[in-house]
């Protein structure tokens, strides 16, 4: 209820301010809606959204898989933790923008460089979160798995992953939010398609309505992804916790 009210208030503020200023730099909501409609009619909006979404998914999966594996190893084995720690710390403190620029310089303005750079920018965050999860694994359950001779796959699926689930969910949630914003930057800097590319175009044309239309459309897509994919998965992973009452 309050959420809707506050959203309506934001919209009203925007509208009011736009009406007051009457400036190209802040178009009113109907102008943005019109821009959205014309981009959709011209057949430019959906391909741009699809291209960006594809990059987001690829970079997100890459960062989650590699980051989880590395974070697990660092949390589980002291030597791995000690060796990889300075690397992760360094990576955590390099701005995503620098990673992107270097990737483009070293590997060219290719799709692989773009996705790799985004994944690399997100990776250390996943590593740090999953490492904490791996450190918190219950040794008592580990012993159960050893005693009853669980194979490595069974151990992973039945003992490790359920304990890591809340940490993976946290990494995924914050990860998706970072990844899609960084993807817009790689597109803006060096891809010939996608929402970031379109934003760059609107920026040069000083087309603020178009700029807002693309940004809001993609933000909507990401909210949808979170609502239909991430949140239900998180809920499923937590279901057993409610058993203990």
């Amino acid at each position: 209820m309050y959420g809707w009210l506050s959203s309506a208030l934001l919209l009203a503020l925007w509208w009011g301010l736009a009406a007051m200023l009457q400036d190209r730099a802040l178009p009113a909501p109907p102008a943005v809606l019109a821009a959205l409609r014309s981009e959709l009619a011209a057949g430019a909006l959906l391909p741009a959204l699809a291209a960006t979404l594809g990059r987001v998914v690829a970079a997100f999966l890459l960062a989650m898989i590699l980051g989880s594996a590395l974070g697990y190893a660092m949390g589980r084995w002291r030597a791995a933790g000690a060796v990889a720690d300075p690397w992760v710390t360094l990576l955590l403190n390099i701005p995503a923008l620098v990673v992107i620029l270097l990737a483009y310089i070293w590997f060219g303005q290719t799709e692989a460089a773009a996705i790799g750079a985004v994944a690399l920018a997100k990776l250390p965050n996943v590593v740090v979160v999953v490492r904490e999860g791996a450190r918190a694994l219950d040794p008592a359950l580990d012993e159960v798995a050893r005693l009853y001779r669980f194979g490595p796959l069974m151990r992973l699926r039945e003992v490790v992953l359920p304990q890591l689930a809340p940490f993976l969910a946290a990494a995924a949630r914050s990860g998706l939010a970072i990844v899609w914003k960084v993807v817009l930057v790689v597109e803006l800097l060096g891809r010939p398609s996608g929402v970031g590319f379109e934003l760059h175009l609107r920026f040069q044309l000083f087309d603020v309505a178009g700029l807002l239309a693309y940004s809001l459309a993609f933000a909507g897509v990401m909210l949808l992804v979170e609502a239909v994919a991430l949140r239900p998965a998180e809920k499923r992973a937590r279901a057993w916790r409610h058993a203990a009452a």
Partner: peptide, 9 residues
């Protein structure tokens, strides 16, 4: 074991 150590999930 002294604690049941069942897999809670």
């Amino acid at each position: 074991f002294q604690e049941p150590r069942l897999l809670p999930w």
